[in-house]
Simulated assay, not measured.
Amino acid sequence: MTRDQDLLSAAALTAFKLNGQFLDLAESLARPAGLTAAWWQVLGAVLHTPLPVSAIAREMGITRQAVQRTADVLVDRGLAEYRDNPAHRRAKLVAGTEAGLAAIKAIGPDHARQAKRLSGILGQEDFAAAVDALRKLSAALDELDRGGSAH
């Protein structure tokens, strides 16, 4: 294997592990607010602006079907609602309700504590550099997906 292949494999395995770690953390933060990590993810995407399911899926990197199932559950539980979309008659917008936004707000204090703890372990500068590196990696994978020449 080449060095590039080793790096791609290491990046993927690390991302898979990180995904599991972040999901575990998200579940532990969301549970006391009566949410799951998936519910929090979808509600968080529409916290400030209602979006169609397809836009939430693109932003979150998950399937449209998974977002649709989650949105349906959130609507059934009164945590979100569907609104008419002026740009597209059939693609309704998902918006958080007062109950959904209150649940998200309830996560805030524990979220802040965990963020502070992680920043304390990494140091704020290294934490920011890690986030920047993850964003660059994600953008490069997007470019690769589009058939571009990821640098």
Rank of each mutant, 00 (worst) to 15 (best):
T2H: 15
R3V: 13
R3K: 07
D4Q: 08
D6N: 08
L7C: 06
L8D: 08
A11S: 10
A12N: 09
T14W: 08
A15H: 11
K17W: 08
G20W: 01
Q21L: 15
Q21K: 12
F22R: 05
D24H: 14
A30S: 15
A30N: 13
R31D: 04
A33I: 02
G34L: 01
A38V: 15
W40L: 15
Q41G: 09
V46S: 14
L47Y: 09
H48Q: 08
L51C: 06
V53G: 06
V53H: 07
S54H: 02
A55T: 11
A55F: 04
A57G: 02
R58M: 02
R58C: 02
M60C: 07
M60W: 00
I62L: 01
T63V: 00
Q65I: 14
A66Q: 09
A66M: 09
Q68M: 05
Q68E: 10
Q68L: 06
R69F: 11
A71S: 11
A71W: 00
L74Y: 10
V75T: 14
R77D: 12
G78D: 14
A80L: 12
Y82F: 14
D84M: 13
N85G: 11
N85Q: 11
N85Y: 13
N85S: 13
A87D: 15
R89N: 03
R89P: 04
K92C: 03
V94T: 12
A95W: 14
A95C: 13
T97P: 07
T97F: 05
A99I: 01
A99H: 00
L101P: 00
I104Q: 02
I104A: 01
A106E: 05
P109Y: 01
P109M: 03
A115F: 14
A115K: 07
K116N: 05
L118F: 02
G120S: 03
Q124W: 05
E125Q: 09
A129P: 00
V131M: 12
A133P: 00
A133H: 05
L134N: 03
L134K: 01
R135G: 05
A139E: 11
D142K: 02
E143Y: 09
D145E: 12
G147E: 04
G148C: 04
A150H: 10
A150V: 11
H151P: 13
